[in-house]
């Protein structure tokens, strides 16, 4: 496979942040009450990932080793603030729903982890592709979990009601349901593709 595409595939499948690396659990559980919310959160995080990966890769030689953590944090926080301001201005309803989790993208282990593990060691193009891959993988995981929870919990998918109300298992749109749904999804993934550890 083309090496560039391989980077994207890596982020999407081989090293999927939610199902394989088990990182970034907080927004995964907190924002997936519906497929739409999960998708939006995933895309916001993907945007921050792409931009921070690219910029950190650009500046990696200008940042001395000892101060690299605070420098990365500032760069990531900048993009998170940009996302915050834009969402507040142009998608206010989504901003209200996602609430606290938007500024919390800055402490998402995935973003800082990827900056440290990949962007600081590769060139800009590769880092950007890695950001896209991991971001897409995260979005995929969040949307999948959101779909499962929305379908089981409210009988709808992206707002379209599919199942009658008596089939709704309300637990899945509440806190415990998030844990259980994610646990079951990871178990399914383990059954299909056992992790090597």
């Amino acid at each position: 496979m083309n090496s560039k595409l391989k980077i994207v595939y890596n982020g999407l499948v081989t090293e999927n942040p939610t199902f394989v690396l088990l990182l970034g659990m907080c927004p995964t559980l907190g924002t997936t009450t519906s497929a739409h919310n999960g998708l939006a959160m995933g895309l916001a995080t993907a945007f921050v990932l792409m931009c921070s990966n690219a910029v950190i890769s650009l500046c990696k030689n200008l940042i001395p080793e000892k101060v690299h953590i605070p420098a990365y944090i500032v760069i990531i926080a900048t993009f998170v603030t940009v996302v915050q301001l834009c969402m507040n201005a142009y998608t206010p309803a989504l901003y209200e729903t996602l609430g606290l989790f938007i500024p919390l993208i800055v402490v998402n282990c995935i973003v800082l982890g990827r900056a440290e593990a990949f962007a600081s060691k590769h060139d800009v193009a590769d880092s950007l592709l890695d950001g896209i891959g991991i971001g897409l993988g995260f979005t995929l995981a969040l949307t999948l979990l959101g779909c499962v929870r929305e379908l089981l919990g409210s009988g709808s998918l992206f707002g379209f009601v599919l199942l009658p109300e008596w089939t709704n298992m309300l637990l899945f749109v509440m806190a415990p349901g998030a844990f259980i749904a994610l646990g079951l999804l990871i178990a399914v993934k383990n059954a299909i593709n056992p992790s090597k550890s």
Partner: peptide
């Protein structure tokens, strides 16, 4: 090559980053 971690370099790079960030935001 990556910049050396001298105090001057550290201060310069952090200040530079903060200035750029301030302008963008």
């Amino acid at each position: 090559k990556k910049l050396e971690s001298t105090p001057l370099n550290m201060v310069l790079s952090l200040t530079g980053i903060c200035l750029a960030v301030g302008c963008i935001l």
